[in-house]
Structure formats: C-alpha cells, structure tokens
Amino acid sequence: TELRMLTSYDQTSAYTREVAQRYIARVGEASQGDIKINLNGPDVVSPFEQLEPVSSGVFDLLYTHGAYHTNTTGVGAAMDAVFVNPDATHESGLWEFIDTYYNELGLKLIAIPPLGSSGFQYVLKEPIEGTPGLEGRRVRGSATYTSTTQGLGGTPVLMSGGDVYSSLDRGVIDGAAWGLNGVEDFGWNEVAGYFTKPTFGQTYTYLFMNLTAFNALDEAKQDLLLEQGRALENETAAILDELAQQEWASLREKGMQETYFQPADAERLDALVNEGIWQLGIDKSPEAVSNMREIAEQNNMTATVE
C-alpha cells in the first residue's frame, strides 16, 4: 500500500523529522515495507489550507497542528489546554471524543503526538524586571498567546512569522512568543538577548487519515497504523524535550540568557494560557470544545484561572 502524507512543516524542520518521518519509519518497519508513505510539504499546499485536501482524498494522511485549521474547527487547537499525558488522554475518553468529532469531517484520528512536556516561551530583547513581566512590551504571537500576553501586562501584536526577525531587530516589537523548538532556526538569538523561564502550557500536533482511505484498508493495516500512532504519542514528548534542551544550550553559547518571570507571574502562566486556549476553542466550536473541557476538568487534565 502506498500512501501520500501532507506535512505542515517544511522538510528540514524538527517536527517533520522527529514526528512525521519517525511515524513513516515506524509504519514501514512494522509492516515490513508493505505500507509505504510519501511525504509532501507546505510547497504543495500551504499549512492553513491542508485539512481540506486530506478530507477530500487528494492526500491520505496529514501531519499538522490544530491551529492551522481553526478555520474549520476549534477542537484540534483546544487540545493545547490539556496536560501532556497520552495515557490519560485515552483513558478519559478525550481521544475518542476528538476522533469521533473529526470523523464528521471525513478524517480518522491516528495520533495526537505532543511536542514536548512543556509548550511555550517568550523571546525578549530586554530581561524581565518586576511584575507583571511583560508590562509595556509589544509582543508578537499568534491568537494562542493573546490572553497570556495581555495577562502578563504586554501588548499582543499579530504579524507574519517572516516579519519577526527584522521587527525584533529594528525594535518594532520587544519580543515574540514561540514554541520550544525553532528559535535558533529563525535566528532570533541574533536580534534578541533573552528567553523566558519557566516555560508554560503544552502543545500537540495531529496525525489524521482520510476516513474513506482508512476504511478501505483491511483491519490488520488499520490496527497497525493506530498502534504505531499510539507508540508515537508516548515517544515524542521526551524526544522534543531533549531537542529543546540542546537548543537552549546552543542559544546560551551564542550569547542568549535566561530571564525569569517572578513567582507571582510564574504560577499563573499555565492557567493563563490554558484558559485563553479554551476560550478560543469555545468561540470557534462552542459545543464540542465545552464537552472537551468538561472531560478534561473531570479528570484533572487542565489548569485554568479560578
């Protein structure tokens, strides 16, 4: 069987390499070469438009982040408000809930690989002084970070990723929010001196398969794809944590320093970001995300603002 996978991240990125390619390798090995997966990148379809061609069957598999398809549903991105614990995600029924939800969109959920046990950080031009830590700063971030940035006294700025380097350089913005991998790739260490601690929140990616294509496979192959997805979920957090550690070490070598949120801010970080993510999700898909939140709260899988 030959399958066509679409990835939202370019072929050199850590996520494609460490998650998508790893899955492809796993499946190839487990099926003894019977299932082959070809990978297409964002040059074929831009990340924000990738869900549609997979549901319509142009591609069989999709490796993406929920934030890339908030134009269709808020469910995928809302998972970012849930603590990293793949076992709990399955046992609580949350995984199945999301699977059933995406089935309606013509997609089969294969895996929800977390991108590390923690999710986000800020890159700042100047170190943090006092609370709230981002007071008076203009900070670039996607919608995910808006409420966190505001909660920390900063002013959120929306701008395209390509503009960030020169905007930091020229002081159009004072900082940028980002995940724990990629700051070095983007060269932000050349234009900003600090990354913040503690890191906060968590973030997940998704592996989907076109539902019709999935149903067309025999049961053994279906099981194989799902089993390998499950194994992948348990594996990725540690791998990406290790990569983040390596990146920080390298950033320090290149002259970047840590800067710490004071305790009053630090203890609110997780709750701020989770609350913001739930709200975004509920705005997009009120019923489904409220259900998700209920499941997560009943099982102590999220922290939110009281």
């Binding site: 924000f48 890339y68 398809h69 908030t70 134009n71 269709t72 919608a143 929306l158 997009k284």
Partner: peptide, 14 residues
C-alpha cells in the same frame, strides 16, 4: 455549508 471561517486574527465566514 461547512461554516468555514477565515484563519486570520479577525475571523469571518470564509
């Protein structure tokens, strides 16, 4: 039919 919105900061029906 699908209620697709735009995917920018200010989201409106696509």
């Amino acid at each position: 039919d699908g209620g697709t919105t735009t995917a920018l900061g200010l989201d409106i029906p696509k």
